[in-house]
Design a binder for these strands. Structure first.
Lengths: 327, 327
DNA sequence: GTGAAAGCGCTAACAG
DNA sequence: CTGTTAGCGCTTTCAC
């Protein structure tokens, strides 16, 4: 690999001049600029990012800490974060925590100014006192933990309310919720939205219709749905706190010959691509993932120069499909 | 951040000694070792990987070039590659090409010794002469292009044959294939397996039953299935070259009131998690993704020290589910 | 066994 | 406008 020095020698100038050209510094004598550009071309010079970053005191990377790439929501988000980070010449290091406390702790511990310039975090189990961050960070989604860290996400209460209102508008009376969770902040907010929608419609909030899910995988949704169908008086609709739970719930309903949406209307959350092609297709709350990714990365970029605490609220919409309204 | 020098000063030794301790060099006077370890602890020293890599002439990263993270197969694979790379202290830089020739070319062009130590490639459109790789690389899957680059993947011909044999064993006579592709090497191999399974069973290979798919998304599978159902004599089974195509195909069948598996048996390829919970669940060829990820990373690790050309064949299995055998 | 010092490739004062 | 030079934090000869 050609180095700056090689290029300088070939062009008959100093490394400084080459560096100036490479970095787009304006004041270079036209004649020198031309010679340097030719030498650059001839050598096929590519800057050594490692050296540049060392010198500049940055790492050139940001961390994206998430539960698991095999969860479609995070996979889609990761793709968008990578694209957004490219704009700022950042590489994205993905760390998977598998949603466990120990996984999240060790991910946070590994973070540091020596490794990444900043971090995007999507924690599920962390406690308040775990947040001893050594780099500018942003939290995805809202959380119960009240820590002074910037956040990006949608209004979960409002989104859940929209979802449940939709079910109510369909004439459903016994609307269940799957995904309550003792620790997760977003779960608490979605439950809050669910409760308030019922309330404004004069429907009772029934404990038996709220199912806790310790994980948000398809299997958890199926298990939760089974328990709801075992009720002496099963629900006629269910609001699932993410699409995977909803997919699992629909699967369980189908196995019991419960028809969706005729007997049971289902709404999910996240709008995974998978939900468009499921049978029936799934009505879902669709956060603007692109907006989330861009907001998070841009916010970090700002914070690396001037620290500040920001909360960005991104838009969402409800996409109505066959799981609530038959074609 | 504490540097080696800080630690050395605190411990009252030279940086060399500290470096020796940090890197696990054996011959350090016990007394010095203890002092250094205390200083390490006291300062919370963490090596600056950027500096270390610069000095060692490596980047500490490998590239994973794939079409798109929102495709479940690649998302799952990426998670596994990240885990495998950690064993060798490698970070994984994910580059998305979106399956386009230009995307793949620019990804390859950006690769280089200054950026990554090695690369795992999953190209779809590249031509032979595009493969001017400047770092040790491994190709995922088999390809038509005959280039001297190491490969890791399953035996696609055999896998396709197993899938189609399964359909034949069910008594299906008009077995279609979705996913033929003029360029993709893996598509050619799967088609070859399909053809040979028909042949050994004495079934005719019919052009009208082979549908080309330029992309392998759910929508492409749905479109292909529709065209097959429009045939005067539609198929009674279909082998899809990946699970997304199969999910789309099942969706299209359902929309036309074609029952799966009664009227139409469906087999996919990749064994996405999604396929376990679809209705009906999808029979699929399951490559051992963990084995692929590990083999690819280990192979690269070997190649960074001693270049060699290797082809690793990883195992697969056929997981039979409801799309071919009703419960 | 350990210290001094060079240097990986780059940027940025600082001169000139 | 451009050359010289120091040094980012680390590893690694080379002496001692």
């Amino acid at each position: 690999m050609a180095t700056l020095k090689d290029v300088a020698r070939l062009a008959g100038v100093s490394v400084k001049t080459v560096s100036n050209v490479v970095n787009g510094y304006s004041f270079v004598k036209p004649d020198n600029r031309r010679r340097v550009e030719e030498a650059l071309e001839a050598t096929g010079y590519r800057p050594n990012l490692g050296a540049r970053n060392l010198r500049r005191g940055r790492t050139g990377s940001i961390a994206l800490v998430l539960p698991e790439l095999s969860i479609p929501y995070f996979a889609e988000l990761a793709g968008l974060v990578i694209a957004a980070a490219q704009e700022h010449e950042w590489n994205v290091l993905i760390e998977q925590t598998f949603g466990t406390l120990s996984g999240e702790r060790s991910a946070l511990a590994s973070l540091g100014p020596h490794l990444v310039d900043a971090a995007i975090l999507s924690p599920e189990a962390l406690h308040v006192d775990d947040f001893q961050l050594s780099v500018p960070s942003v939290l995805l989604g809202e959380h119960a933990v009240d820590v002074p860290i910037s956040r990006v996400g949608i209004d979960n209460v409002a989104a859940a309310r929209v979802a449940v209102r939709h079910l109510i508008s369909l004439g459903r009376k016994r609307i269940a919720a799957i995904g309550a969770h003792p620790q997760r902040g977003t779960a608490a907010l979605r439950l809050e939205g669910y409760r308030s929608a019922l309330e404004e419609a004069g429907l009772p909030f029934l404990d038996e219709l709220v199912v806790t899910a310790l994980n948000y995988h398809r299997a958890d949704g199926a298990a939760a749905m089974k328990s709801l169908l075992d009720l002496r008086n099963p629900p006629d609709a269910v609001f699932c706190f993410n699409d995977l739970l909803a997919i699992g719930a629909m699967r369980a309903a189908t196995e019991r010959f419960v028809r969706v949406p005729a007997d049971l209307a289902v709404v999910g959350f996240d709008n995974n691509e998978e939900s468009v092609y499921s049978s029936p297709s799934l009505t879902s709350v669709a956060p603007d993932k692109g907006a989330i990714a861009r907001a998070a990365v841009d916010l970090l970029h700002r914070q690396t120069s001037s620290p500040a605490l920001e909360h960005v609220e991104t838009p969402f919409s409800l996409l109505v499909r066959e799981s609530t309204v038959a074609r």
